[in-house]
């Protein structure tokens, strides 16, 4: 069997696990929604202010939601010994990381894309920004998952790993946040979001090979 079909088997298995265990996807999207809903309570129901900061709020909430679920990315496979069996299988560890991240993104990232426009309505964002909002999230959240995977791999086996992941990874999320929120702002003010979107795409294209290499190196260390 080719590497490709082994890769798909791993994604398929992770999706199946997520479907049967259920909670991860729901937790991430619920957190996302609640996080955004809190802002009108804190800032007050002034429609103009909310509309002005909607893009930033949604992006920060998406970032935190992604972080929340990433902690578990390798944890359960590490604890029950599956991870070392995967390391011994013919599939390179980099591809194992990529497959697990892809499955994780489908389960936790895609629901965010669906929830985001609804939240944008709630925050009184102008309709002209909706398309860009979904597009930036579609480009940005996979990059977040890939970068976060490095943190998840580095903190495997550490006590209070979740807090450590946040400290390690949040600074690395900043570029994605800047260009994600920037693209929506540009679209809302009538400018072209294209430059921002291109940089977001570049970030995704760069993390796609680099993050799995870093994560795999961290996993090898954790398995020793």
């Amino acid at each position: 069997m080719t590497l490709g079909s082994r890769f798909w088997h791993l994604i398929h298995r992770d999706l199946r696990l997520a479907m049967r265990q259920g909670s991860d996807a729901a937790v991430a999207v619920m957190f996302f929604v609640l996080c955004v809903v809190l802002f009108p309570f804190g800032i007050g129901p002034e429609a103009n202010i909310l509309a002005r900061i909607a893009a930033g709020i949604i992006w920060v909430a998406a970032l935190l939601a992604s972080l929340l679920s990433l902690e578990r990315l390798f944890q359960s496979d590490y604890e029950d010994g599956s991870l070392e069996l995967m390391a011994l299988s013919g599939l390179p560890l980099e591809l194992v990381v990529l497959a697990k991240t892809a499955a994780h993104w489908v389960v936790t990232g895609v629901p965010l894309l669906v929830a985001a426009p609804v939240l944008a309505v709630l925050l009184n964002m102008e309709h002209s920004g909706f398309g860009t909002l979904v597009l930036t999230l579609a480009l940005g959240t996979p990059a977040l998952s890939l970068i976060g995977g490095i943190g998840a791999a580095l903190t495997l086996g550490a006590r209070r790993g979740g807090v450590l992941v946040s400290l390690l990874i949040l600074p690395l999320y900043i570029p994605v946040l800047i260009f994600g929120a920037g693209a929506i702002d540009a679209a809302l003010t009538g400018l072209s979001p294209r430059p921002h979107l291109l940089i977001l795409t570049a970030l995704l294209v760069a993390t796609l090979p680099l993050a799995p290499i870093a994560s795999a190196a961290a996993l090898r260390q954790a398995l020793e």
């Binding site: 604890e79 010994g81 599956s82 070392e84 069996l85 011994l88």
Partner: peptide, 13 residues
């Protein structure tokens, strides 16, 4: 083939 201490069994599979 390596059989370690941990069995790598998932509760839901």
């Amino acid at each position: 083939r390596y059989i370690g201490h941990l069995d790598g069994i998932k509760p839901v599979l």
